[in-house]
């Protein structure tokens, strides 16, 4: 199913759709603390965006464009999640204790920043990379 990239329509549309989905997925990730969304949803959304990329173009050209090793991203995600936990321990708090505060940033105005966001980012990376790795591993196995 991934051998014949001959659909111009799909490819053009895909580029547009992917852009929208990607930005929406980032929004979901960042807004997750206060409105629906978060690491799980964001990660899966990004993964689907990238999957559309793979579906509309062929496997090899995408692999040339995106040179990530997704398994490493899983490791990175796990590291993010556990490090946020360890950092709070360094300050004498229990493992995985989170902190938040409100800051006023230029352009954006008052913004809430929280360490939980970093943790969620870890979740995001793990879910994103896991979904992609599973699908791609099977797809690549063509023997």
């Amino acid at each position: 199913m991934m051998q014949k990239p001959n659909n111009m329509m799909l490819q053009t549309l895909a580029r547009l759709i992917i852009l929208i989905i990607l930005s929406f997925s980032i929004y979901l990730l960042l807004a997750g603390h206060n409105s629906p969304g978060g690491g799980f949803v964001g990660g899966l959304m990004t993964a689907s965006a990238i999957l559309i990329l793979y579906l509309s173009f062929d496997l090899k050209s995408i692999q040339k464009a995106i040179k990530f090793d997704y398994i490493k991203i899983i490791g990175m995600g796990l590291l993010f999640a556990s490090l946020t936990g360890v950092v709070s321990m360094l300050f004498g708090f229990p493992f995985l204790k989170h902190f938040f505060d409100y800051f006023t940033l230029p352009i954006l105005g008052e913004v809430e920043l929280t360490t939980a966001m970093v943790f969620d980012l870890g979740v995001y990376f793990v879910v994103l990379a896991s979904a992609l790795t599973i699908i791609l591993t099977i797809a690549e196995d063509d023997k």
């Binding site: 206060n34 969304g37 995600g77 936990g85 995985l96 989170h98 939980a116 870890g122």
Partner: peptide, 25 residues
């Protein structure tokens, strides 16, 4: 306690963060 409005997400990343961490593991 956690400064979040989405309770489900707050449970996942903050109150029960360890569970989530093990889950992604």
């Amino acid at each position: 306690e956690a400064g979040g409005y989405n309770i489900v997400n707050v449970i996942l990343v903050d109150f029960r963060g360890l569970d989530t961490m093990l889950e992604i593991l």
